[in-house]
Amino acid sequence: MQGEVRVLLVDDHAVVRQGYRHLLEKSNIQVVAESDSGEEAYRLYTETDPDVVIIDLSMPGMGGLEALRRIISRDRNARVLVFSMHDDAIFPTRALQAGAFGYVTKASAPEVLVEAVMAIAHNRKYVSHDIAQQVAVHNISGGDILNILSSREFEVFTLLAQGRSVEEIAASLHLDYKTIANVQTRLRQKLNVENSAQLMLLAIRLNIIKT
Rank of each mutant, 00 (worst) to 15 (best):
K125H: 09
V53R: 11
I204T: 10
E25R: 01
G163N: 05
R188T: 08
Q30A: 11
Q18K: 11
V112G: 03
K125S: 10
E155K: 08
Y42K: 11
N123V: 00
F91H: 11
S128Q: 08
V166Q: 10
N147S: 02
G19Q: 04
E168M: 04
A181L: 09
G61L: 11
T211R: 13
I208W: 02
D12M: 11
R205E: 15
I54R: 08
L159E: 15
S196V: 11
M200G: 02
R186G: 06
E167H: 08
H138E: 09
R74V: 01
N77F: 01
A67P: 08
N182W: 00
L8T: 01
V32G: 03
T105P: 10
G64F: 09
E4R: 12
V166H: 09
L159M: 12
D144L: 03
S128I: 05
G143C: 02
S58T: 14
N182L: 05
G64C: 12
V52E: 04
R124N: 12
A107L: 13
A116E: 05
E47V: 01
A132W: 00
Q134K: 15
I90A: 07
R76P: 14
I180W: 03
A14V: 12
N182E: 14
I169K: 11
L24H: 06
H138A: 05
R164G: 03
S73E: 14
D88E: 14
A14W: 02
V7D: 06
I90L: 07
I208F: 00
A121Y: 10
L57T: 08
L23S: 12
G19P: 06
I180E: 05
S84V: 05
A132I: 03
R76Y: 14
I145V: 05
V5P: 07
I131A: 05
M1H: 12
H174N: 15
D12I: 11
V31L: 05
S108L: 01
K210W: 01
D87W: 04
V82E: 02
S108E: 12
V7E: 04
R164L: 12
L146P: 09
F83Y: 14
S27C: 07
F83I: 03
A67S: 13
D56A: 04
G19I: 01
I120P: 09
S151M: 15
P110M: 00
S84L: 06
V117D: 03
A100W: 02
Q162I: 00
E47Q: 13
V16T: 15
N139E: 15
I180H: 06
R188M: 14
T179M: 05
